[in-house]
Design a protein around this nucleic acid. Sequence first.
RNA 1: CGGGGUGUAGCGCAGUCUGGCUAGCGCGUCUGGUUUGGGACCAGAAGGUCGGGAGUUCGAAUCUCCCCACCCCGACCA
Length: 583
Amino acid sequence: MRWTKTLIPTMKEKTPEGAEIPSHVLMLRAGLIAQVMAGAYTYLPLGLRALKKAEQIVREEMDRSGAVEVLMPALTPISLWEKTGRVNAFGNVLIQFKVQRGSRQVHMALGPTHEEVVCEQVARHVSSYRQLPITLYQIQTKFRNEERPRFGVLRTSEFLMKDAYSFDASVEQLNQSYDTMYRAYCRIFDRCGLKYLPVEAESGPIGGDASHEFMVLADNGEDRVVYCPETGYAANVERAEIGPRNVTPPNVPEEPLELVDTPDAGSIEHVSKLLKSKPEQFIKTIIYEVDGQPVAVLVRGDHEVNENKVRRVLKAESVALASPEVIEKVTGAKVGFAGPIGLSIPIWADHDVAGIKNAIVGANQTDKHYKGANLGRDFQVPADHFADLRNAVEGDPAPGGKGTLQIRSAIEVGHVFKLGTKYSSALGARFLDDKEQQHDIIMGCYGIGVNRIIAALIETQHDDNGIIWPISLAPYEVIITPLNVAQEEVMQAAEKLYQELTAAGIEVLLDDRDYRAGVKLKDADLIGIPLRVVVGGRGLAEGNLEVKWRHEAQSFNVPVKGGAAKIAQLVQEERAKYGPKPL
RNA sequence: CGGGGUGUAGCGCAGUCUGGCUAGCGCGUCUGGUUUGGGACCAGAAGGUCGGGAGUUCGAAUCUCCCCACCCCGACCA
C-alpha cells in the first residue's frame, strides 16, 4: 500500500484531548482509531489491519483446537433473555428496544454475550451423547451499555469478542474441553507477543479451579491481580486466598471499654481523624443480607470485605449489603455506627480481627463509638466463625504459607469459565446417554476481547516515539521510506523494492508522501511498523539500503542488489517466531 | 448513578472573571518559491451556527436559566 492512497492521519506530539493512557494516546496519534461517541470508535485502515491480524490468530488457534466457527446474530429476541432471568441480571447493560413491524411490536436486545443464543441452537440440534463433546465459537461484535466507557478501546459499549462455548456430556469431558481452550489461549497470546499471566478467577457455582482470567500486567489496567513471585500463585483480587496469618494480639494491657461521641462520623476515615487513631485499630462491622438473613461481618478497619468469600464460607446463594432500613433495625443506629457489641445477629470475622486489642468499634448508637473494645470480654465471635473474608492486600502471606503476595494492575484479555448446566437446564439443552438417560448438557464458556489484545499490546509495547508492534499484529510488516521523493533514483529504487517485496508476499507500506525526511521517520516510528527500510541518496551512492527493526536501536545496511530477497528472508524469520507452534 | 472538569477553525489552545470595533494564536490544509537524512523557511490564501436553545442588554464567546456532548475520579461491570 502507498501511504498517499490510504488514510493514515497521524498526529504530531500533541496529546489528543481526553486521552490519558498510552494505548489510547498512541492509537489516536498513529491514526488507528477515531472516536465516534463515548465508547464507540471507528477503526481506520491501520487499526483495522491490526485488529484483523489479531482476529485471524484467534481464529487459527481456535480451529486448531477443534472448535467450530459459527456466526450468531447480534439481534436477539428479548424472550430469550427472560427465560434465563438475565434481563434483570444485566439490567441497564443490556441494550434493548422495540421496533414496529406492521401492526405489532417486536422487542429485541443486542447480544452482550451469547450463552442463551448458542444454547438454544444446540438444544434444537443436539440430542445424543454421540454428538458430544462439541465447542462452537464466533468472532462477533458485542454490545454492552457500559455505565462509563473509558480508556480508549479498553472499555467500550461495542467491541469485538471471540466467544466460545463447549458442550459436554460429563464433568470429565468438560475438564478436557476447558483444558483445550486454556492451552489455545496460551498459544493465541503468545503469538500476539503479549506478556500475559493466567490467574485464578471467581468461579461461580462450580467452584474449585473452574475459572481463569488471562491478564496482561499494565499500570493502567482496571483489574487487580495478586501474585506471589516465590510460589507462582496468581489470582484476581476478587478471588485470591490469603495464607495463614499471624494474629497474636499485641502484648499490651486491656483498656476499659469507653463510649465516645463521634457526631456525624460514620466512616472509618472520619472517626480515625476525630479520635486520632489509625484505621488498623478499628474493627469494621458490615451488615450483610445473606440469603435474606442479616449477618454481621467484621474486618480490620483498613481491610475490605470480599463478598465472594463470605458467600463461599457461609455456603450462601446470595450476599448483598443490607439496606439502610435493615441496618437501622438490626443495630438500632444510623448507618455508619454498627459494632459487634450487643449485636444479636450472627457474627463472622476475618482472621485479622483476632489480632486487634483495644479496638475502636461502632457503638450501635447513632453518633457514638466504643474505644477499648476487646474480643472475648466485650463481644464474642465463635471460633468457627473466623475465616478468610477479606480482599488480599500487598504483603499478605501467600496461600501455602510460603512467600508474600504482591498486587499489580492488569488488563483482562481473556476469560475461561466452567459454566455447568445453568443455561442448558433453563433452555432445555439435553442429551440422552448410552443408557437412555436424559441429562442437561454441561457447558463452558470462553471469551477473548479482540480489541483489548490490540490495546494491551500497545499499552505494554511502546516507547517515547510510538508503538512497537510484533510482526504478528503489525498493520504492515515493512515500511519503505524514500527520504526524498523528488530524487528520481531514490524513488525508482523504492518503487522497485516495493514491487519485489509485495510480489514476495510481504505486507509493505510505501511512504511516498512528499515530506521531509524527519517527518517520515518520526511517523514510521509512531505507527511502529516492525521493519523499516530507508532509501536515501547517501545509501544508494554506496549501493546500500538502510534497514532497522523498530524494536532495536541500531540500523544495518543491506546491499541494494538482492536487497528484496534478503529483506523478505528477514521478515519470514521474524514471522516464524510468532507463527503456529506444535500442539 | 454521585463528585469534579471541559466545550471557540481539521487538531491543540488563548480570549470568558471585569459584556464593546471585523473573534485570535500555533499546528495542519491549499497556492507560489527556496529547501531536502530525525517533525524546514518565506510570501499569500481558505477554513468559525464561539456545543444547542431561551433570556437580560443599545450590544453576548463573555452575564442568567434550561438542555446536550465529551473527559476524569468513584460506584457498577456477564
